[in-house]
Design a protein around this nucleic acid. Sequence first.
DNA 1: TAAACAAATGAGAATCTTTTGCATTGTTGT
DNA 2: ACAACAATGCAAAAGATTCTCATTTGTTTA
Lengths: 141, 141
Amino acid sequence: MDSQFLKKVGLKATLPRIKILEILESGGTARHMSAEDVYKALLEHGEDVGLATVYRVLTQFEQAGILTRHHFEGGQSVFEMDEGRHHDHILCTKCGRVDEFFDPTIEERQKAIADKFGYSMTDHSLYIYGICKDCRKKEKA
Amino acid sequence: MDSQFLKKVGLKATLPRIKILEILESGGTARHMSAEDVYKALLEHGEDVGLATVYRVLTQFEQAGILTRHHFEGGQSVFEMDEGRHHDHILCTKCGRVDEFFDPTIEERQKAIADKFGYSMTDHSLYIYGICKDCRKKEKA
DNA sequence: TAAACAAATGAGAATCTTTTGCATTGTTGT
DNA sequence: ACAACAATGCAAAAGATTCTCATTTGTTTA
C-alpha cells in the first residue's frame, strides 16, 4: 500500500500524497510529467488537490529520492519516478517523444572530466535533442 | 566595427544591439551572462536600454548564431558568445564557477545513441554539476 | 541629405511557472 | 478519541520572459 511506502520515506500518508503517487506510478499519461500534468490528471480522477500542493509534494518526493526532476527545454520542470537505474534522455523536438538510455562510456568520461577539473561530481544532466523517425517520415510527406 | 558585423548577420545596426554586443564581447562580468546580467551591465555603463529589448536582442543573436543559450539549473537562461568551437560545461553548485570542456568520445557516443534510437540529432546539452576544488577546501575549514 | 517606410525600442501590462502566507483541516501517537 | 503539529487550499506574490503599442530610429530612395 502506498501509505506504508510514504511512511517509510518519512512522509505522512496524506490523501494528496497518496493520490499523486498513484498518478505517477500508473504512468498513465506518460513517465514524464510536469506539475501541471499531474494536477490535470488529479482533476480528471475527480480528486480535489490544489496546484500548490502538487508542487510541494513533488518537491518533497524529489528530496526523498522517489523521483527525479528534469529541466527539458521549454521552461517547466518535468518529473519522473525513480526506478533505481540512472539514465539520460533523448527527445524529439517535434512531437515531444522521450526515450531513455544509459551509456557507460559517457558516464565514465564525465567522471574523468570532473576529476581533471578538480570537481567532485554530484550530478549531471544530459539531453540529446533531435527529430525522431516518425516525425521525419511525416515531414517528407 | 560591430555595426558592420551586425549588418553582416542581417540585423540593423541599432544602438542597443551594438551596446549589448560590446558587453558580451568584453566578457566583462563573465563569459556566461543572464539577460538580467546584461541589463545591469548596460545600466552600469550608463546606457539606457530596456530589459525587454535585452531579451529581444539576445534571442535574435541566438537565432543569428552569434551566441548560445544555456539552461543551467536555477531557472533563468544564460547566454554565451559563440566562439566557433562547441563545448560543454561543468559547474560548481556552491560558488557558481563554470568551466568548459570538449570531449570527442562523448560527442561520438551521443551521435551513436541518436542513430540507434532513430533520431537525427539536432542538438544536445550536457552539464556536469559538482563542487570545485576551492569550495571543498573552504568546507573543510 | 531629406523624406518615407519599415523595423526596432521602451515602458508597462500580461503571461507562465513556481513559491509563499495564513487560516483551516487532517494525521499520528498516546 | 484528543492534543500537537504537520499538511492543505486558496489567493496573493514573486521571478522570468513575452507581448502590446505608441514612439523613435535606421535604412533606403529620390
